[in-house]
Design a protein around this nucleic acid. Structure first.
Length: 648
RNA sequence: GGGCGCGUAGCUCAGGUGGAUAGAGCAUCAGCCUUCUAAGCUGAGGGCCGCUGGUUCGAGUCCAGCCGCGCCUACCA
């Protein structure tokens, strides 16, 4: 509704400027600094001042007298140095909200692909992975809420170095056979945690025994050839870890549509096809001298504006194996349907809610869904990999796919590091150098990090204490369910409240907080809104027929009260908040709006005792406000992937 | 060395395309539970927006140069 009016106001002024000055301009609207200035400000006079060589104030006055009445706008005035401040017709606005009017979503029908999570399937997920998955999942929810068609991909690098290292650890350090590893997967110990420790173990073993990296090389070759014990182990390990990762993410309400796997990229010759294309169109060349002699490289000039010769990127190593970036180029081509090849799929898993996730397979199947063929692709990958993403895009461009290169978006974000205090809390030893830093980088190799499931468990336990202290009479399973929803709300909000390019120095105290600007604060507001409506029914009353009882005049009467009007106005902006967040690609905007919305409701809650209101019209109006707030809170929380508990 | 990012209240962070008196949360201090749940509400204090210069009617925001910090710059990903 708010968005609709903004649009109407902008268009009206644009045509007014057109007929008055013969200029075509896109009129912007903004929110006045203070609510007393009205609801919508038009700063168009400032834009025009330079072109017309007139004072903004004079232009604003001319516009004001020339523009006719605008539907839904009650008054307009010139303010400040040349602002046009508009006041909305409150009765009109309230009636419009009640009727459910809103601007139609503007997202086109094109298919969008979002790739996120992409955790190496060789160990448990940690908090850095959580930021990736939560950002990606929320961005998907935002676009879907705005009417977009989105496919979620989670790429599985099941043939890479990291998996190979854990294979080496099982074979050479632990002396385990595939059958034994199989038993371990089925056993009581968490397999992803076992691998977490093993990965640390093999990494430090390599440091002490540099010759041992030969094991890694032979393992990589065996995996790539798909032969031997190594390949068997690799599949066993990576499949089991993928199951663990999917379970972890499911706890956070994150699901995927398809899992494209690197093993199929290899076996279905995706890379071979891409390699031919790259050679054919001279995107890469065989280096004949220097440190990269014998490698196929992409010249640095393709992906860096100013670069020396030494900045070229190796795509195929001198031993003939392809780097990750090479495979990524093939994968990116496939996402756009440009490779001329496709995966086969098998159903990997059906989630408890019925959603299905499919995985790539090398064997033809009778029937399976179709994936890929997107027209826009978002890769949710942290900022440290910007360089690699530039190479991938340069690959597309070098092949002549300008449009797809432009539609390949690196949805980047800064890393999650650990605050020194949290490191101490975890019992991790820090070097003197690290102690003086503002934060310490997570390292899988060093085992330096907070495991995702440990954090979730910790949050649930803390939430459970709080829930139990407030509702000791509730059954245990219900309390645990509520505590889980609160924990997930806290975690998702924590990961979303920061803008993407802010480094998060993870701190337990902050992450475990349920007060102030947190997920539970927003959930609490939604729960309270529901409580009012529930209490109404418990008293034997019913929700009035709002449309019948709240005519425009009644709305206008009730909304004449400034506080009510401001609260309703804030609540009505959910749609524009999401729309703006999608446009700027910034999920934190939605999180912040959710918090503001909850704050507004908290104010409303304290200011207006709804159920005890004696005046019939006023009570009906307050009930409608409550129900409207509830709907907006629930909708916004859903976009954030946060559930509303039964009670708090 | 080069590329990217950051520097705003004691701490953690917001600040659409330059605009009206720079905002939240936490922490501190002072109040508010017989009432629809205090995971809440109200109020107070707290700021050379890293520094210097430039662009202009106007700069936290744009440009240049410094200073400090982080990440990247592998035949790892």
């Amino acid at each position: 509704m708010f968005h609709l009016l903004e649009k109407r106001i902008a268009e009206t002024f644009a045509s007014c400027i057109g007929s008055l000055y013969g200029l075509t301009v896109e009129v912007q609207t903004e929110q006045p600094k203070h609510s007393s200035f009205g609801e919508v400000a038009v700063p168009a006079a400032f834009q025009l001042a330079r072109q017309l060589k007139k004072a903004p104030k004079a232009i604003a006055a001319e516009l004001l007298s020339a523009v006719g009445p605008i539907e839904g706008v009650a008054a307009a005035e010139v303010a400040g140095n040349g602002y046009l401040n508009l006041r909305l017709d409150r009765g009109y606005y309230g009636a419009g909200l009640l009727a459910g009017e809103s601007a139609e979503s503007r997202m086109s029908a094109e298919k969008i692909i979002v790739e996120h999570t992409n955790i190496n399937p060789n160990k448990a997920a940690h908090i850095g992975h959580l930021r990736n998955a939560i950002l990606g999942d929320t961005f998907v929810r935002m676009m879907r809420a705005a009417g977009g068609t989105v496919e979620v991909q989670n790429y599985i690098d099941n043939t890479g170095v990291q998996v190979a290292d854990v294979v080496v650890a099982f074979r050479h350090l632990e002396k385990r056979t595939p059958a034994e590893v199989c038993a371990l997967v089925a056993g009581p110990a968490r397999f992803d945690y076992v691998c977490w420790d093993l990965y640390t173990k093999i990494s430090s073993y390599y440091e002490e025994h540099p010759d041992a990296t030969a094991w890694r090389q032979e393992t990589l070759h065996a995996i790539e050839a798909g032969e031997g014990v190594e390949a068997e182990l690799a599949h066993l390990i990576s499949d089991a870890i993928v199951v663990a990762h999917l379970n972890t993410m499911w706890r956070l309400n994150i699901v995927y549509d398809v899992l494209p796997r690197e093993s199929e990229i290899l076996h279905l010759k995706f890379w071979a096809a891409a390699f031919e294309l790259l050679k054919e169109r001279n995107a890469i060349y065989l280096e004949t001298e220097g440190k990269n002699k014998g490698c196929w490289v992409m010249p640095g000039s393709a992906f860096r504006e100013s670069s020396g010769d030494d900045e070229s990127k190796v795509i195929v190593r001198s031993n003939g194996t392809v780097t990750y970036v090479g495979k990524d180029i093939a994968y990116q081509l496939w996402k756009f349907g440009l490779l001329g090849k496709d995966f086969y799929y098998r159903k990997w898993h059906t989630y408890p809610n019925g959603h299905e996730v499919w995985a790539s397979t090398g064997q033809p199947r009778n029937s399976s869904p179709s994936f890929g063929h997107g027209s826009r692709v978002y890769n949710v990958i942290d900022s440290r990999q910007s360089y690699l993403q530039d190479v991938v895009v340069a690959g597309l461009r070098a092949l002549g796919y300008e449009e797809q290169a432009a539609n390949s978006i690196h949805f980047n974000y800064e890393m999650v590091a650990l605050s020194p205090g949290t490191c101490v809390e975890l019992g991790l030893e820090l070097s003197e150098e690290d102690k003086s830093r503002p934060y310490v980088e997570v390292s899988g190799r060093k085992g330096l990090g907070v495991k995702a499931d440990d954090l979730i468990d910790k949050l649930i336990e803390k939430a459970l204490e709080e829930v139990t202290s407030r509702h000791p009479e509730e059954p245990e399973d219900a309390r645990r369910r509520v505590a889980t929803q609160i924990a997930v709300g806290a975690l998702r909000y924590f990961m979303l409240k920061y803008t993407r390019n802010s480094v998060i120095a993870f701190d337990f105290a902050e992450a475990l907080s349920f007060e102030g600007e947190t997920g539970p604060y927003v959930q609490y507001a939604a729960v309270r809104a529901r409580n009012i409506l529930r209490k109404l029914e418990e008293r034997g009353e019913r929700l009035p027929d709002f449309r019948a009882e709240l005519a425009r005049e009644a709305m206008a009467r009730q909304l004449a009260e400034e506080d009510c009007w401001q609260l309703l106005l804030a609540a009505s902006k959910a749609g524009s908040a999401v729309e703006r967040a999608v446009r700027s690609g910034e999920p934190s905007h939605v999180a912040r709006y959710a918090f503001q919305l909850a704050q507004s409701f908290s104010n409303f809650y304290h200011e207006y005792p709804v159920l005890s209101e004696a005046n019939r019209e006023k009570k009906t109006f307050l009930l409608w406000m409550t129900d409207y707030f509830r709907a907006q809170l629930e909708h916004t929380l859903a976009v954030l992937g946060i559930e509303v508990p039964e009670y708090m």
